[in-house]
Design a protein around this nucleic acid. Structure first.
Length: 115
DNA sequence: CCAATGACCGTAA
DNA sequence: GTTACGGCCATTG
């Protein structure tokens, strides 16, 4: 499948999320310059090939919850986050967005890159 | 081309 | 704290 520019843009933003932090699908969409395309962000991450150097596990939903379907996949994401020091509730799969949201940091990075 | 789908979001109750 | 619903729009069938 051909790599769409739209996807590339999403991947570039996700790559800017620092280790040990997270960002919502909607946040990624906003920083891509496409507010409202949160669902498409999920779609783009779903289309990622294994081995792609994109930290997809740092993207969760706006409620601060891991949102991958399937117990296996969600458990993988939880492990990867915890390995980076992110506190994830084992039962609710929830993360404290107030403490870990990287949207402002990514915003500053982009502002510096493309003023 | 039209209809359904989805790793979502904000609001409302 | 929760669930429900409408809106969103690229991608897929």
């Amino acid at each position: 499948m051909a790599v769409h520019n739209f996807y590339q843009q999403i991947y570039e933003v996700v790559k800017l999320i620092p280790r040990g932090m997270v960002m919502s699908y909607g946040g990624v969409a906003r920083q891509c310059g496409h507010p409202g395309l949160a669902r498409s962000v999920g779609y783009a991450l779903h289309a990622l090939q294994p081995g792609a150097r994109v930290p997809w596990w740092r993207v969760i939903n706006s409620a601060g919850r891991i949102s991958i379907p399937g117990a296996e996949a969600s458990d993988t994401q939880r492990s990867k986050l915890q390995a980076e020091g992110v506190v994830v509730d084992a039962e609710t799969l929830r993360v404290d967005m107030r403490a870990y949201d990287a949207e402002m940091i990514v915003y500053e990075k982009l502002r510096r890159r493309r003023p």
